[in-house]
Computed example of a mutant assay.
Amino acid sequence: MKAWYKETLQTPLACVERPDPECRPGSVVVDVRAVHVPAYLMAMVDSTDIPLPVPLVLGAGGVGVVCEKADDVFNVEVGDVVALDSLVESGDIDHPEDVLMGLGEIGGRGESTEVVEAMRTRWRHGTMAQKALLPKEAVTRLPGAEHYEEPGRLAFLTWLGIAGEGVVQSGQQPGDIVAILGATGQMGGAAVLVALAKGASRVIALGRNEAALEKLATLDPRVVPVQLTNDVEQDAAAIIAVAGAVHVVIDTMGDAESANPLLAGFTALRDSGTLVLMGGVRQDIPVPYGEVLRRRLTIRGSRMYRPETVLSVWRMIEAGLIDLPQVGMVEVGIDDPKAAIDTATKTTGLNFVSLRP
């Protein structure tokens, strides 16, 4: 099979011939049909600050078709279209540990333990390949997806699943007012789509890219774009001016240099509101202890997604509550990873690159 493979931190990512993965107990082998190529992937591939656990077949998430399964796998059958998860968990309830397959990113406190290194070794390789081996817990059957006319678009399910988990963790109820920080990015755009599908009365889309904000405003009359200024009080006032204080704030900002938009979102919360952190802000934020207590505010972190969340998102797509053609798509092949990743780096807003191996 062909795969995007990085041999060492110093060697470039390349499309190489690799042996087909061999099925083993508790696992499935899938024919990979589509994988989202995120805009940040070039920085990750070239980075030595957070080194990839090389050698490595790159890639997290996507959709595929089960072509082989072990005898002890009962949640899917050969021929099923499945969503591919990249989160591998230890299963220890008292001391949970997890890693992202195909990237090696460590969850929890980020500590490299004996268990973490064992998981990173056994479930090392990812999904940017023609075939992939995954634990049975990392595949979710998508009933009816075999009839979806544009399978390349289903690669965006990974981002919709992550965004959807953030919306689930927020406790959003129908009629709630939801503010999305970083809405002009791919994850933020996905969060806007899920919040709308789950019945938000207003979705306040916050970002700096004016053109991307204008596109988001065309999705639905309930979307209200607000351009960020990086002034906490001014941005908070702009959020509240739309429809009053908000029930939910979801942070999807990328590698943000300032936490001011996040603080603006916090300021704009109504009493008993919820702030969900799932972005890339690299600064710690001061939390006003007394205010959180008196106003009964909730601050939650959200990472990746549970199988039931990605299945719920798929059902929203099937029902027409999420219209995937509203998301711009560029399809790329597997032979030239550099060109594909260059394209992804330039693809912004509610648009994405779908790798079709």
Rank of each mutant, 00 (worst) to 15 (best):
Glu233Gln: 08
Gln173Trp: 07
Leu275Asp: 03
Leu196Val: 08
Asn260Thr: 14
Glu233Asn: 12
Glu233Cys: 02
Gly279Cys: 10
Asn230Lys: 10
Ala179Leu: 03
Gln186Leu: 08
Val248Glu: 02
Ala179Val: 09
Ile250Gln: 11
Val281Lys: 00
Val203Arg: 08
Ser258Glu: 02
Ser258Arg: 07
Asp235Phe: 08
Val178Tyr: 00
Ala245Gln: 15
Val276Cys: 11
Arg282Gly: 02
Gln186Ile: 09
Val203Asn: 02
Asn260Ile: 08
Gly279Asn: 08
Ala236Asn: 06
Phe266Asp: 00
Asp231Ala: 02
Val178Ile: 04
Arg222Asp: 00
Ile240Trp: 00
Ala205Leu: 04
Gly185His: 13
Glu257Asn: 14
Ser272Met: 14
Arg202Tyr: 06
Ala243Phe: 06
Leu269Val: 00
Leu216Gln: 09
Thr229Val: 01
Leu219Val: 06
Arg208Pro: 01
Ala205Val: 01
Ala190Asp: 02
Ala183Asn: 10
Thr252Cys: 13
Ala243Asn: 05
Leu275Gly: 07
Arg282Asp: 01
Pro225Trp: 03
Asn209Tyr: 13
Val248Asn: 07
Ile250Cys: 11
Val192Ile: 01
Ala259Trp: 09
Leu181His: 01
Ala237Asp: 14
His247Ser: 14
Arg202Ile: 03
Gly279Met: 12
Phe266Pro: 02
Leu262Lys: 05
Gly175Asn: 04
Ser272Tyr: 11
Ala264Leu: 06
Glu214Leu: 12
Leu196Glu: 00
Asp235Cys: 04
Lys198Phe: 14
Gly185Pro: 00
Gly199Cys: 12
Val248Asp: 00
Leu206Asn: 05
Val242Gln: 14
Gly207Pro: 03
Thr229Glu: 04
Asp251Lys: 00
Ile180Val: 15
Ile204Leu: 13
Gly175Met: 06
Gly273Met: 10
Ala264Ile: 03
Ser272Gly: 07
Leu213His: 06
Ile177Ser: 12
Thr267Val: 02
Ala259Thr: 01
Leu193Met: 13
Asp271Ser: 15
Ala243Met: 12
Leu196Tyr: 02
Pro221Ser: 15
Leu269Asn: 12
Leu275Tyr: 03
Arg202Gln: 13
Ala237Trp: 05
